[in-house]
Write a protein that binds this DNA or RNA. Structure first.
Lengths: 223, 223
DNA sequence: CGGGGCGTTGATGCTGCTCAACAGTAGTGG
DNA sequence: CCACTACTGTTGAGCAGCATCAACGCCCCG
């Protein structure tokens, strides 16, 4: 990661360790004073905007940081809720900045993390950009699958720890549509779905439905 | 801004100044090697993903930085194109990091900028979250109006320097729908629209249509 | 065992996409 | 300066994808 053992040790001194949270509890609420970032060690967190009608903004997996959108502000803009029992580390931002100010490698890491968050959101925008619901759900599943496999989990077989309602809000469609599409994908043999358990049977077909460029062909574009 | 004159001077030494670009020219293309961030001095830039069907990702105004999503990568993921004659400053990122590594105030500024970009994208996600097209276009116009007024321009009277096509892509609807909605808003007396020129006549009504919480009531939420 | 939340399924209607033609604007060269 | 073309924007008609409403089954919880 570019951090020496010494760097990590310094970081360790300020991190408040693994406060375990149970399903439904909040990491932070919108409107609360911003003081810390939060690192997800295990579990899953959703961020949402309560303004109006509970718009889901993102699902965050182990290794992700949440709270990044508030650095610029005094208060958190969105709320972060735990979807399953999760271990969350608190990283007081001001103290982090003090330590990082003398550690260029740590600064660099932070820039990368923030940048990664931006490109993450860009991907979500692309996902949402798809006009029809079928494409969006297919793209969502592929994206999730990819993120899980990057974390050493199965890309083909996983549990959705968010509700259908959360998915529908995230993808900008009705709950009923999500339900019907899961059934359709199941019947067409793309997936095997039962409740929260999803098994991807036909990646190629799912990619075709999603209208995405298959990952294998991603890097071939020219300047 | 928290930067001393000395800090600014150091920054000035690495900034490559105001390369003027004309309408249609690119700041960078997707796939190009990432080396610099770009500051918009004057004009307007759109970012888009060419992958597939030219999905517009954002419109950027003076003061904004573009290219932030590539810090984490070796190449730019999206393309950035100038919508009107614009002055763009180039900020070589590696040299920036070298200088910033000894200037905590500059680091802090950079964190804020990156964070601001993240919350910007969150706002866009919220905007896109609206189910019907009417809400999205109204929210888009209000958002743009707000950004313009923050830059000292008129909040009620402005020129759209992007095409209807760009707007439709950005908002995830058909061009025809954008056109029809402009006409409807015009006929209902919310706006006066003629070609690229927009004059907002009834903010309250537009806010009602957008389903947004009026700005006046924004800060009243409780922790 | 009863209740409440979540997910599924069905019927219906409307919003907004698609296709198509046209108008209006800008850009080009004679 | 005007004619020609190409592009962008507008308008209309028709269809369908999906939201909405409603009812019901299922699972988890007390």
């Amino acid at each position: 990661m570019g951090l020496t053992n010494g760097d990590v040790e310094k970081l360790e001194t300020i991190i408040k360790h693994a406060r375990p949270l149970r399903r439904g509890e909040h990491v932070f609420h919108a409107g609360e004073r911003f003081q810390s970032l939060y690192v997800i060690k295990t579990g899953c967190v959703k961020t949402y905007d309560a303004q109006g009608k509970h718009q889901v903004l993102g699902f965050h997996l182990p290794g992700d940081l949440v709270g990044l959108d508030a650095i610029d502000k005094t208060c958190h803009l969105c709320s972060a809720q735990v979807l399953e029992s999760s271990a969350i580390c608190e990283l007081p931002f001001q103290r982090f900045e003090e330590i990082a100010s003398h550690l260029p490698s740590l600064q660099h890491q932070m820039y990368r993390l923030l940048s990664k968050e931006i490109s993450q959101e860009t991907e979500i925008l692309l996902l949402r950009g798809k006009t029809n619901a079928e494409e969006r759900l297919a793209a969502f599943l592929l994206h999730l699958s990819q993120r899980l496999s990057k974390r050493g989990l199965s890309a083909t077989d996983f549990y959705l720890n968010m509700s259908r309602n959360d998915i529908s809000s995230y993808l900008g469609m009705a709950v009923e549509t999500v339900s019907r599409l899961f059934r359709r994908f199941n019947d067409q043999g793309l997936l095997r779905v039962s409740h929260k358990h999803v098994e991807i049977l036909d990646f190629a077909a799912l990619e075709r439905v999603s209208g995405m460029v298959p990952i294998s062909a991603q890097r071939q574009r020219m300047p």
